[in-house]
Design a binder for these strands. Structure first.
Lengths: 253, 253
DNA sequence: ACCTGAACACCGTTCAAGT
DNA sequence: ACCTGAACACCGTTCAAGT
């Protein structure tokens, strides 16, 4: 898995020679390799592979996202993909950043708070739109070009709010943590069985089986926990976060 | 994968008849099945399986966490595990809640803010301690007994701060989103290649290759983004969140 | 440089047979 | 009720051979 792959023509093939997909050097290496390409007419490309992978993901879900399924959708052999991606992990890292590329970055003209609200909502939207596993994790590493563009926009907005550069960066990381966690948890909370049963069905019965002291407050508010609308929960999370940032602004902002 | 599994003695075997692992009904079903068990001397049990899985996870990492590896560690055949767990997904859901069971829940006596700080730090600690994939996702579903105990403790603390019950619940969800996102992202940020290279190595060179306008702010603060210590970032994220909650408290609190 | 069929070394899961 | 060896239907990845 981590051995070096040498081509018949003596060149190290496409990518990932011991480099972790998503890491800074890995992204550098990828841009190098992309430049050295000689695409054939109607041949494969990383973009076509990502596109097909997104199709598979959207139609058949995450479990169906296999190298073989992507190849079949492209009408080629699965072995062919390995000239453009070094592993399935690379494909997933590429998808992660590609998804971040859908984020619309634009200043609202209505101040930093509005700008950040748009950035947070956009990030949530694209994650929910294209559900990868572990959205908060290595797929959002932070070194892909689209992710860095997003980070830069957030730092700029917090900067304009009056935060120091260092605090703007820390605050940006906090923002990303919150949105990534919110989107991923929403997905699991709204999950259902294959038969269509919501994940929370039977919640009251479940509470009855647990030690009463462990869930005393939940017994009184179970329904709120169970059926809080995802959009309202996110709006509330975002409000807490933005209020917290506001309270830390230097006087005069 | 989702077909019903009937035992030779006519009973539906161990678990998951179309129920999503981690859902409320699935947890109910599991407690039913555990009660119907007749353990043999030196035989298997769900607890022993989880323990072995945690050993594998800690020693050899996530990729090594296969049903077969767990069985080998227990000195049995992999087929034997399927009497206690219905699938690998079930095993992972069980591990997720088991990990949450390590959280120490105790009131500090120093007010709601100190209580919440402890809860957040504890949740982060156990996630980082036992790195499952997708910590923010289905493994933290929210319906396992240990997770519910944790949720209840947080709701209670926010309640004592003066929030309404409904707002206490929303705020608890926001808290979990933040911690889950923070822990998962920290894991990816501190990742390294097999060769030991940090994920961020080569960051400046990477910035040089991107459109200057896309990363203007990062060029000036790249080092902060790159090497912000994880503990400091978390402390900052937590402070923003707690300040935000404070600012939303009704007057008099 | 790119593409491919065939093969390798795995997986999760099932099943019939045993205690 | 529990356990097991053997098998099934996959998977990611590699390799030699072709253009």
């Amino acid at each position: 898995m981590h051995t070096v792959q040498v081509d018949s023509d003596g060149l190290v093939a496409c990518a990932s020679v011991g480099l972790e997909p998503g890491s800074a050097r890995w992204w550098i290496q990828r841009s190098d390799l992309d430049r050295r390409r000689r695409p054939r007419l109607g041949g494969l490309s990383t973009e076509r592979i990502i596109g097909a992978a997104l199709d598979v993901l959207r139609e058949d879900g995450l479990d169906a996202l296999t190298v073989r399924a992507v190849a079949e959708r492209l009408g080629t052999s699965n072995a062919s993909l390995y000239r453009h991606i070094a592993s399935r992990d690379e494909l997933i890292a590429l998808i992660g950043d590609h998804v971040m590329g859908d984020i619309r970055i634009e200043r609202t003209g209505r101040g930093w708070r509005a700008d950040i609200e748009v950035l947070m909502s956009e990030m949530r939207r694209v994650i929910l739109d294209q559900p990868l596993p572990d959205a908060a994790g290595r797929n959002m590493h932070g070194y892909g070009p689209n992710m860095l563009r997003f980070v830069n926009a957030a730092v700029t907005a917090f900067d304009s709010a009056g935060l120091s550069r260092a605090e703007a960066v820390y605050t940006t990381i906090a923002m990303i943590e919150l949105v990534a966690g919110a989107a991923t948890i929403q997905r699991s909370r709204s999950g259902r069985s294959p038969s269509g049963v919501p994940a929370g069905a039977g919640f009251d019965e479940l509470l009855d089986r647990l030690p009463p002291d462990d869930v005393a407050a939940l017994r009184e508010t179970g329904d709120v926990y169970l059926s809080a609308p995802a959009d309202a929960v996110f709006a509330h999370s975002m409000a807490i976060f933005l209020d917290g940032v506001t309270s830390r602004l230097p006087a005069g902002h």
